[in-house]
């Protein structure tokens, strides 16, 4: 790996300042994608600005109908949080289903959301719950935030500070994991809340996380697993690799959607 400057600011203002002072800097918030990329020489930032030392980015709070999670909160803390378990148990389960123990103690919700890996779990929760991604500059609703594979609406130097999740009536998540990477081959997050039914799919779409509008419509009319019985996903919108063909992923999406509906208030992980 090439040599670079490693910087660990104590607060967001300092992070912004040193990001601007260092040409070709990159934010680090866990690094499970970034560090392998650096080791392979696929990215060569001159400086890494580590956000995980910023205390104000590590919190889990509830205010009114909103559950807020600081961007530098690691997956293990979300998974074990009594607050998350009480208000959105599927979200705690989702965090607990990411990677392995080491990953969960290092990876952060902000890092995952900002990276928008097409197979990552958190984007499904953010989109599936209609959350707001709050940055040092503004708030971005989930539907506007994820813009494509590894692409988001974040501007250069913009820092995700927290995610605000509207607390739903019920939510659930079901995922089918790759045996090698443990990333989802297809996963579906379903919520029923203030703004109706939302269904978000990750791991499967050619363009990353997306909302399955047909499924949302069917479940809005009838919020039971049976409502999904005759629905299908178009394989043309599904990605293809050694792990799954478009047809396989399209089938898995429907299976995961039905299983999510069959196990309300939980995260189910299949392999």
């Amino acid at each position: 790996m090439h040599s670079l400057r490693y910087l660990r600011p104590a607060n967001v203002e300092e992070a912004v300042r040193i990001f601007n002072e260092n040409e070709d800097a990159s934010f680090l918030s866990g690094g499970h994608t970034l560090l392998p990329t650096l080791k392979l020489g696929l990215a060569r930032p001159a400086a890494l600005v580590d956000l995980t030392g910023i205390k104000s980015l590590r919190h889990i709070t509830v205010g009114g109908d909103v559950l807020s999670i600081g961007a530098a909160t690691c997956h293990a803390d979300v998974a074990s949080s009594d607050i998350v378990r009480r208000h959105i148990p599927a979200l705690a389960g989702l965090a607990g289903s990411i990677g392995d123990r080491h990953v969960r103690n290092r990876g952060t919700i902000g890092g995952s959301v900002a990276n928008n890996d097409p197979a990552a779990d958190y984007p499904a929760a953010v989109l599936g719950l209609g959350a707001t991604v709050v940055t040092d500059r503004r708030g971005l609703v989930a539907d506007d935030f994820f813009t494509g594979l590894y692409e988001t609406a974040l501007e250069s130097g913009e820092i995700v500070t927290r995610i605000d999740f509207p607390i739903p009536q019920i939510a659930s998540y079901a995922k089918f994991r790759s045996a090698a990477s443990r990333y989802s081959v297809a996963a579906v997050f379903i919520s029923h809340g203030q703004s109706g039914v939302r269904v978000a799919v990750t791991g499967a779409g050619t363009n990353g996380v997306f909302r399955a509008k047909d499924l949302e419509q069917a479940l809005s009319d009838d919020f039971r697993p049976e409502a999904l019985a005759d629905l299908h996903i178009d394989p043309a919108s599904m990605s293809s690799d050694n792990v799954g063909t478009p047809e396989y992923r399209a089938s898995l999406v429907m299976v995961m959607a039905r299983r999510a509906m069959a196990h309300p208030g939980t995260t189910q992980s299949y392999k």
């Binding site: 392998p36 790759s178 045996a179 090698a180 990477s181 050694n242 392999k271």
Partner: peptide, 30 residues
């Protein structure tokens, strides 16, 4: 039998399993 394979892309001759991300190791939970 279930996970491991050094796969070579038939079009390019490139090995495609270059990390534990895509080479499935047996794990205790399996």
């Amino acid at each position: 039998a279930l996970w491991e394979q050094c796969y070579i892309d038939p079009g390019s001759g490139q090995p495609t399993n270059g990390s534990f991300m895509d080479y499935g190791m047996p794990r205790f939970d399996n």
